[in-house]
Design a protein around this nucleic acid. Structure first.
Length: 584
RNA sequence: GCGCCCUUAGCUCAGAUUGGAGAGAGCAACAGCCUUCUAAGCUGUGGGUCGCUGGUUCGAGUCCAGCAGGGCGCGCCA
């Protein structure tokens, strides 16, 4: 149960009752009524703005309306106190039993706690990573991978039907460069001296095994063949090989896509012609000449008529080219086709996760989606800012040329997949992220991964301990729920339950905003509250979780500990991180 | 030049069904305490022109306009 939506619904009922009984005018719009936790815990458990947003239409002063609503709220058994404060807030304090019941709900529900029906089964397509198949993934791709995957999980948790998709950019000039680079390695593998890798080719040693594999499969047959003969098969071979490399990188990160879409296949099937044709039918395509970009010197600029999309009709700054000078489609044109394809596959809700360097592209693709779907499709683009690799505060020197480039795989191998995943989600996607090797592996409160995992491990430790003290007792979540939790009376215990009961609200808020990082902050706060409770047990023995002389109290507190672990596990599941049972 | 993103405590950042109540957390600093059910801590104190200036509103860190500083991008790369 989302406590706050629960009371929001209640408030709307109260307001409509007031209206039907003639206490206030009948045409009240309850949609702006919200319930939320007050900033100050001292104000109560739930605050609502109902009186303030309805005051005008009710023709009453906020305080008078609030008093009327408050009188009704007092009748609810779970509400113990109602006060009107400030400009007209109505604050409610809820019965301890109401909160204890939430803990039992958590235990009965397990890690599915926080699931919601918000999405009502609507289909959403989350496209992420989509790195060009020209090399292994780097750390920036890793951030996009984790953000996309966690966002997808969040949407699944809130009742959306999510498809995780990868768009393979296997058409265009760069995959030809890849093919030529691979061909060099092929010759090298057959004993030829290739000298230095020419400018503009991919110099990475990761192509070495690809060339060898090609040589093993094809022998010497292409050594003296003209490029026109080998280019296409080598390209196909290389793309497949590099997608396999990327696939391994993603597997190491625990990311799985449901669908891999090929740009090449889309283009070959005439997808671009379809999409552009559709726009042409709607009069959104024309031959025109663009002004040169200002402020940036472009060599060889010459005004040239070209096929343009009227992106300015949909909020973009300039109309965008669809054809290159050589007559081939621009990347943007195939992106039109791709997003139309997604829409035709049943996704009116699309999310793309891109690197921040593609920021200039957002408007035009959104314009395209709007034009192609006649406003029925939506595209949200999450831009991921750069990740700075540090070690104890010092930048890790990276240079593609010098070969000191750190791949995602190396980072995963060094610190572990769960650490990478969690840390990548500790910042808003559009904020810079420092990834400090020393920081993310240290065991202290500074390290959010450790701090959250440690809370879970401690809970497991308490549980293990309890099985020794109370042998033969059913200490499973359901068992604990059955023993009852009425012995939880300390304010710090009830405070922790309140925090646990806030999880569904966090999930829904993060899902609606497409902001998985909120989960990280919540988990960090929750872990902090739990560690605080633990330390209270150190100081005051009567507050320890396990009190051997008092099984009933111990079971109630174990229930609380288990509830905390359940919510942490639920949150980590969104991140694709496995909760640990022991710290090592 | 234009567009997008960012600017909140000394540092790193939150700020939550999108406008609500004296703006929070963690580090660092200072003052005490603790040495444990699994150690990597606990409590308290100080610290703010929410970049600046206007505007909308009963109410603005949040919305709008302008300005300043930082990042990214700007036809024939993807």
């Amino acid at each position: 149960m989302n406590v706050f939506t629960h009371f929001q619904t209640m408030l709307r009922v109260v307001v409509s009752e007031l209206a039907t009984s003639g206490k206030i005018p009948s045409d009240q719009d309850g949609s702006k009524i919200t319930c939320e936790p007050p900033r100050e815990a001292g104000h109560g458990d739930v605050a609502t703005n109902a009186a303030m947003v309805l005051a005008k239409s009710a023709g009453m002063k906020p305080h008078a309306l609030a008093a009327m609503i408050a009188a009704r709220l007092e009748a609810f058994p779970e509400v113990t106190e109602v006060t009107v404060a400030g400009p007209g807030f109505i604050n409610m304090r809820l019965a301890d039993d109401f909160w204890r019941e939430r803990l039992r709900e958590i235990l009965e529900t397990g890690p599915a706690y926080g699931d919601s029906t918000l999405g009502q089964g609507r289909r959403v397509n989350v496209e992420f990573v989509s790195a060009n198949p020209t090399g292994p993934l780097h750390v920036g791709h890793g951030r996009g991978a984790v953000v996309g995957d966690a966002l997808a999980a969040l949407l699944e948790k809130t009742g959306h039907a999510v498809t995780r998709e990868y768009y393979i950019n296997d058409a265009g000039a760069q995959v030809d460069v890849l093919a030529r680079s691979t061909y060099l390695r092929y010759r090298e593998a057959l004993g030829e001296t290739i000298g230095p890798i020419p400018e503009g080719y991919y110099p990475g040693t990761y192509l070495f095994p690809v060339g060898q594999a090609l040589a093993r499969r094809e022998g010497r047959r292409w050594l003296s063949a003209p490029e026109s003969e080998w280019l296409e098969p080598v390209r196909t071979f290389a793309i497949e090989a590099l997608m396999a490399v990327i696939g391994e990188d993603l597997a190491a990160l625990g990311v799985r896509h449901d669908v891999f879409s090929s740009e090449h296949a889309l283009v070959t099937a005439g997808g671009v012609e379809n999409a552009v044709g559709l726009l042409a039918e709607r009069g959104l395509v024309y031959e025109g000449v663009l002004d040169p970009p200002k402020g940036k010197q472009v060599d060889n600029w010459e005004p040239r008529p070209q096929l343009l999309f009227r992106a300015t009709r949909f909020g973009d700054d300039i109309d965008r080219p669809l054809r290159k000078s050589d007559g081939r489609w621009t990347y943007f044109a195939s992106d039109l086709a791709y997003h139309l394809d997604k829409y035709h596959r049943g996704f009116s809700s699309m999310i793309d996760v891109w690197g921040a360097d593609h920021g200039g592209y957002v408007r035009r693709v959104q314009a395209a989606v709007q034009a192609l779907t006649e406003g029925k499709g939506t595209l949200d683009v999450k831009l991921c800012q750069m990740v700075a690799l540090l070690d104890a505060g010092e930048p890790v020197k990276m240079s593609k040329r010098a070969g000191t480039f750190v791949t995602l795989r190396e980072v995963i191998d060094q610190v572990g997949r769960d650490v990478v995943r969690f840390i990548m989600l500790t910042r808003k996607n559009d904020a810079h992220l420092d990834f400090d090797f020393a920081r993310v592996t240290e065991q202290s409160r500074d390290n959010p991964v450790f701090y959250v995992q440690y809370a879970h491990a401690r809970a497991c430790s308490v549980h293990r301990h309890a099985t020794e003290i109370f042998p033969g007792v059913d200490l499973s979540p359901r068992g604990l729920s059955a023993y009852g939790v009425h012995r939880l009376t300390d304010p710090s215990e009830l405070g922790l339950i309140r925090m646990l009961a806030g999880w569904p609200r966090v999930v829904e808020g993060a899902a609606l905003a497409h902001e998985p990082h909120r989960v990280a902050y919540y988990l960090y706060d929750l872990a902090g509250a739990f560690h605080g409770l633990w330390h209270k047990g150190n100081e005051r023995a009567e507050l320890r979780f396990l009190v051997p002389d008092d099984p009933e109290l111990s079971f109630a507190r174990l229930a609380l500990v288990q509830g905390m672990a359940t919510v942490v596990a639920s949150g980590l599941a969104v991140f694709g991180v496995d909760p640990v049972e022991e710290m090592r």
